[in-house]
Amino acid sequence: MKKDLESNLTIEKAAATAEILLKYINTSKEPVIDLSVVEKIDLSGIQLLLSAQKTGDKQSKEVYFTGMIKKNVYDRIFSSGFNTVHSESSDGLFKIRRNSSEL
């Protein structure tokens, strides 16, 4: 089951989002986080997505993201030096990596 995120991934919601994400990753076998509802993101939000990936690594799970990202959200991620890198095996699943890194 994939997890929908709230529309604001910003510092105001950071603590709550961190809690929701951790709970979801802990309980899901193949965690997939849907970013399509996210309308605003800042560095704290990007950091939480990166942290979610690391959490998966720690638990030997692959944390993926999915959903059509809003342009302003994508631009924000990209201008911070990150990019979305799609998985070759699963349609529509991606990770957030440093620009042009391999998956």
Partner: peptide, 11 residues
């Protein structure tokens, strides 16, 4: 330096 969610200070 970004920690996993279980040890991160989100702020």
């Amino acid at each position: 330096d970004v920690p996993a969610l279980d040890s991160i200070n989100p702020e």
